[in-house]
Design a protein around this nucleic acid. Structure first.
Length: 381
DNA sequence: AAATGGCCCAACCGCGGGTGC
DNA sequence: CGCACCCGCGGTTGGGCCATT
């Protein structure tokens, strides 16, 4: 009793796209954009469904696509992101400009999975096989992220440990000044601190990973509506506590931590929108300019006419325990500024024209395309 | 040279969420 | 509230290509 495909219903063409079809679609979108995909095929004179057109555009015709094989850095980034996000290919792809979710998914299934297996990791959990087999945590084990970054886990308390921590917070888009103060305060007396540290102090601080700065999942917060419910629920079981840590008792932690100095009352439904998420005198927030992921989201917020900051409704969906389970979310939550603070808005606005490399926003992409086409001639296809 | 098997990638399918009526 | 429609996502498939036998 499954639904018939839209193509079947309308007796539309399926299968590979011909150059003529590509040409039609390209020309049409260049001229008119794609406000409504379902009307695109009709207007463009294509015997395809809107879905098919959309897919073709996103995966092949879009002018900002990067072609060719994935670099080692890209592969490493995918592994790292997959460890955090799981099979959320579209979210992963937002961190890799010019790469599509489909492309990344294919790479993962055909190549990266295999590589991880060959090196003794379970691709799904990013755990080492021996860890799985023994059913116990062994801190000396490397994990897939270490493999990706070529790093091993430094010991807590060491300079290297702190150095990596700073780097990781920077990855979250926080400035170093915020990082140290924030993390010291946040983690000073909480039993959960090692959960945070163990989970994150695994990424290299070398030049290879420095290009990750600003790319990581603060986006998840900014995007924290319904899709995040899924994300959040799936983040908790893995991989946060899969490396060397055990899940901690939220309640007992809360009762004895210093988090209250940083976080608003747990019952507050305006948790995220609260300006007291972080005390500016304690540390300065600067949102990293290097928003590799900013564009897709900015188009969303433009469309909805809302600032990048979390909306109340979104904030309400984010349950406090999820923050406490999830260091990334916590760190990002602390960054969440009120509209008055302007930091986030200002930074995003400066990027908002979406005129650089990611032109998912249909309002500006033809610009790019023309430029690119001029540069490339009629090269591809 | 032909057959076979594995890999890769483009595209399809089905589902869930959002929205408008 | 229920329904229909649209969009986007993740899983899956089918076919072309290439290496091996």
């Amino acid at each position: 009793m499954g639904r018939q495909s839209c193509c079947y219903k309308q007796k539309l063409r399926k299968g590979l796209w011909s150059p003529e079809e590509d040409e039609k679609l390209l020309r049409h979108i260049t001229k008119y954009g794609h406000a409504c995909w379902s009307s695109v095929p009709k207007q463009a004179g294509l015997k395809r469904c809107g879905k098919s057109c959309r897919l073709r555009w996103i995966n092949y015709l879009r002018p900002d696509l990067k072609r060719g094989t994935f670099s080692q850095e890209e592969e490493n980034l995918i592994i790292e992101l997959h460890a955090v996000l799981g099979n959320r290919w579209s979210q992963i792809s937002t961190h890799l400009p010019g790469r599509t979710d489909n492309e990344i998914k294919n790479l993962w299934n055909s190549c990266l999975k295999k590589k991880l297996r060959q090196r003794g990791f379970v691709p799904v959990t990013h755990k080492h096989l021996s860890e799985v087999e023994n059913g116990e945590d062994k801190s000396e084990h490397t994990n897939s992220l270490e493999m990706a970054s070529g790093a091993s886990t430094p010991k807590p308390g060491t300079a290297l440990y702190e150095q990596r921590l700073v780097h990781l917070l920077e990855m979250e888009g926080c400035s170093s000044s915020m990082t140290i103060n924030c993390i010291n305060n946040l983690m000073a007396s909480t039993p959960s601190k090692h959960l945070f540290l163990d989970r994150f102090a695994i990424t290299s601080t070398d030049s290879q990973s420095s290009n990750l700065v600003g790319r990581f999942p603060i986006q998840q917060l900014n995007h924290a509506s319904s899709s995040n419910a899924r994300l959040l629920s799936s983040l908790n079981p893995t991989p946060w506590f899969t490396q060397t840590s055990k899940a901690f008792d939220i309640d007992s932690d809360l009762s004895s931590t210093s988090m209250s100095t940083l976080l608003p009352p747990l019952t507050s439904s305006s948790f995220l929108s609260s300006p007291m998420c972080f005390n500016p005198s304690m540390a300065s927030f600067t949102v990293n300019n290097n928003f590799a992921w900013g564009m897709a989201d900015c188009s969303t917020s433009e469309k909805e006419g809302t600032p990048i900051n979390l909306m109340e409704s979104q904030a309400e969906e984010m349950k406090c325990p999820e923050y406490l389970n999830n260091p990334l979310l916590m760190a990002a939550a602390m960054q969440n500024q009120t509209p008055q603070s302007g930091l986030y808005n200002m930074e995003i606005k400066s990027e908002t024209p979406c005129s650089t490399d990611n032109s998912l926003s249909n309002s500006t992409w033809p610009h790019n395309q023309q430029q690119q086409q001029q540069q490339e001639g009629d090269g591809h296809i």
